[in-house]
Simulated assay, not measured.
Amino acid sequence: MAGTECGLPLNLISPPTVEQELWLHLGSIVPLNCTLQVPGSCNGNVTWLKDGKAVEHLYTSQDSVWNGFNSSVKFLSSVLDVNLTTEDDYGKFTCQLQNVSASFTLHKSAQAGHIAAVVLALCLFAVLVIGIVLYIKCRLNLNLWYRDKYGEPELNDGRLFDACVSFCPSNIDTKFTNFILKPQLENRYGYKLHLDERSLLPSTEPSAELLMNVSRSRRLIVVLSMAYLEQEWCQNNFRDGFFRLLELSQTPIFILFENQYKDLPAEVIHLLNSQKGTLKTMLWKADSVSPASEFWKELRLALPRKISLSNGQGDPQTQCQDDKDPMLTLNSEASDLDPDGDLGVRRTFYKAPPPRIAPVARVPDREPTADVDISDLGSRNYSARSDYYCLVTEPDL
């Protein structure tokens, strides 16, 4: 655009530098502002060039003029609107007036990769889903591993059993307790159970036998079946008996059968759900028979942690007890004179020779009599320390 000559000085106000680098996306509209301070007598116009050529009518410009604080200076402004519709719209745009010029170089900016962002989001979502699935599948194994490695064992508490199992002597409950629950916990995991098929609360108050059995056990397991609920104390006042059980045992375990759950009274289900923080409810399903099922893992988590000791160390419950009972002697290795059996020693107590005994006349028609009376072996109790008890013959003394 032509214009009259302007006197000096000419000052560039916008852009702040004579060289501007801009990176823009295709489809953007950018206004290029070129403002100069000129003498008040100047009537010239700002000229726009693209790559050294006049822009002509390809782009529209808005020119404006305003005076300064006094009539000696005024401002000329020209704003060129560039619509980046094609790659040809990129280039170097220059505004100039006489010997003063400023340039705007427009570069094409790479479009933001939405595909990469979507792929990253999907990967994060997949990792989150996999983590949740693995936690649901392996949470019990992780909890068991942590409990067995870092959990506190319940030792030296004077308890004889890990759990007291209360069940109804019905056909189904008896088979479940004796042929599934007891073998799995005792033979596979080493727990010691006390089975009680009698009524827990024959009256409004707990019996002395109930108190003794529960006090000797670290947990109370109740096989809560339909037959169990048909007991007299359950039918008369199950609510009071239920809360008495919560007072007697710490975190009792209630085992329910899935095929009987829908037939349970609403009061029983409501009481079990209202006390979830003080008891453990477990559901026996058709797939719970497998040793790897969640039922056994949850049951093991509810039971005390078991300690596996090497042979010869004795019962861990008596490791730190000052019990003088020879059946519970702490030093089992020194006390057990016959580790291979309990029907007589195979070495003498002392190095001194045994006392002489008059020879016994032989009776040819009779079998030799045994030196040890074993008639009462069947009534003796070896449960406390089976590796200690031994019989000593009179000659060895």
Rank of each mutant, 00 (worst) to 15 (best):
F167K: 02
V363M: 06
S288D: 02
G158T: 01
D89K: 09
E258C: 06
V46A: 00
L200C: 05
G241D: 00
L248G: 01
L106A: 08
P326R: 03
L229I: 11
S199H: 00
S71M: 11
N187V: 11
Y191V: 01
L279Q: 07
K137F: 13
G27E: 10
L12C: 11
K182E: 13
E5R: 02
E232N: 15
G3T: 09
Q62M: 07
D322M: 13
N99V: 15
Q275H: 09
L120H: 13
F75W: 08
L84D: 05
M212W: 06
N70L: 04
Y191R: 01
L397Q: 06
I221A: 03
D196T: 01
N236A: 12
C390M: 13
N143W: 09
L144W: 07
P316A: 05
Q250N: 10
S14V: 12
S71W: 11
N141V: 01
R380T: 02
Q275S: 13
T4Y: 12
E232I: 15
L80F: 05
D322I: 14
L301W: 04
W296K: 01
V118R: 14
K285G: 09
R147Y: 08
E232M: 13
N143L: 15
W66T: 00
P395K: 12
F242R: 03
N273R: 15
T369P: 10
G40N: 11
Y150W: 08
S249P: 08
S293H: 03
P183D: 05
I307K: 04
V165Y: 05
Q231D: 09
W23L: 10
D88R: 08
Y228A: 02
N178H: 12
Y382K: 08
N213Y: 05
W48L: 00
L120I: 14
S375Q: 04
H57P: 05
L76S: 06
L245P: 13
D240P: 08
K306W: 06
A116T: 12
W48Q: 00
T85W: 04
Q235W: 02
L330I: 10
N141Q: 12
Q62D: 12
A370N: 12
D365W: 13
Q111C: 03
D173N: 04
N156F: 08
T86H: 01
W284C: 03
Q321I: 14
V127C: 14
C123M: 08
P354I: 15
A292Q: 09
P9A: 09
G40D: 11
